[in-house]
Design a protein around this nucleic acid. Structure first.
Lengths: 245, 245
DNA sequence: ACCTGAACACCGTTCAAGT
DNA sequence: ACCTGAACACCGTTCAAGT
């Protein structure tokens, strides 16, 4: 067996007498969430494992379980921290439509800045402190728009789902074509268009017409698509509210 | 080493001369998809593993890779088969709203009957043969309603996302409370209501009012919630279409 | 061409043992 | 109370070898 240097060895000059050479900061829930967040931001949610978090903290995976119930809870904790980054509006009933849109846009931007986390948003309603803040904002907005609290609560969920689904869609698209150049993407689109054109027009009249019509999908960029869906959502809400009066 | 019975052993009485005793049907993509589907229906998508599929087919996991590129592709194949179970309407432009709603309802019902699969729906636009059939139906419906093909294509995606998100929500709810009795659920709701009531009313005015107002969420059942969201979606679409004329 | 056993490089979580 | 090493019971996928 080889001789290995131990921290407590009093003969090493860099070892300050009385305390161990390098006190690693002790494990804590906060430190664990920090480490998890860093992994997600750098490598995406799919790279998050209890083992990776443990390694970042220079310990073994089993040690994490003293501070966190399981991986699911850890992700929820990260998610709630991320929710804290989303700006919420001061509610102005007269401008609820524009405020709701801004809120949704800001939510999308934040969640997209933590790769892969959008998938975790669909795990259930946000129940952490920051999640409740968001709930209050969107439910409050819908309430100010004229919905009962109960209907407004449902509306808050719709908005959250809209953000999550859009973030997820944009992420999976980037994952599939992220490495590809613009040329490669448009080549792929051309191929797909060609495939649609080759379908039997009796059974697929609209898709064939679509392929022939030039643009495959008219809201073309991610942003245009997000905005169009958001417009439809807000229009639907406004129409629903009107129908109740 | 123990003597092990071999299929070709000519001395065993149940071994019919000339062909092996039990010719297992050969592996095929179809058989693999069958087996995967059975596992999903019985135990949910989370129980689907290449190893489980292989075991069901009495072989090793490596054998599957001669017929299927990877697990992701296998899930896509299962998904497309499930898409085949969804009924599509004969398009009648005058009734597009009701037809769209029926189509969405039928889609939800089918996807819910294959536990966990809804999560896979969010992996991208459906590109298999049955998926294209659905695309033609929803895009055709939106086109009949007055949208350009390109806008209609985007609309088709919205509908798919709405189905997926609702199925996913209902499934995660059942997963979390599926084992619980109605009493346990309502006890949990009461607890949550109490928590909301205890929040500082200055910072959470709407949530506190909501908790005090009795019903936590007004569309109460899964079905009511689905229908209300669907109503909002269709209203939004109708309003959007009108604004373009 | 298809199938196989064995291996690679991972997972989340538990548990007895240490401090 | 907190941390650890080791193990349990899994994963998806690859690869050389067999038929």
């Amino acid at each position: 067996m080889a001789y290995t240097v131990r921290m407590a060895d009093p003969f090493l000059p860099w070892d300050q007498y009385g305390k161990p050479a390098r006190t690693r900061q002790p494990l804590s829930r906060e430190a664990i969430v920090d480490a998890a967040m860093k992994i997600i931001d750098e490598q995406g949610l799919s790279a998050l494992s209890m083992r990776a978090v443990a390694q970042a903290l220079d310990t073994g995976p089993a040690s994490l379980y003293a501070h966190v119930a399981n991986k699911e809870q850890l992700i929820d904790l990260v998610l709630d921290r991320v929710y804290g980054e989303i700006e919420v509006p001061e509610i102005d009933p007269a401008r609820w439509q524009e405020q709701l849109k801004d809120f949704t846009r800001s939510g999308l931007k934040v969640i997209l800045s933590h790769r892969g986390l959008s998938a975790a948003m669909l795990g259930g309603p946000p129940m952490g402190p920051n999640g409740l803040r968001l709930m209050e904002a969107s439910v409050g907005l819908a309430h100010a728009a004229g919905l009962s609290e109960a209907h407004a609560a449902f509306m808050g969920e719709l908005v959250g789902q809209y953000i999550a689904v859009n973030a997820l869609e944009q992420e999976t698209f980037r994952e599939r074509f992220g490495a590809a150049s613009e040329d490669e993407v448009s080549e792929w689109v051309d191929q797909f268009r060609g495939y649609l054109q080759s379908l039997p027009p009796e059974r697929f009249p609209t898709l064939v017409a679509l392929a022939r019509s030039g643009a495959l999908m008219s809201p073309n960029t991610e942003e245009e698509r997000f905005e169009m869906g958001l417009d439809i959502l807000v229009r639907g809400l406004a129409s629903y509210i009107e129908s109740r009066n």
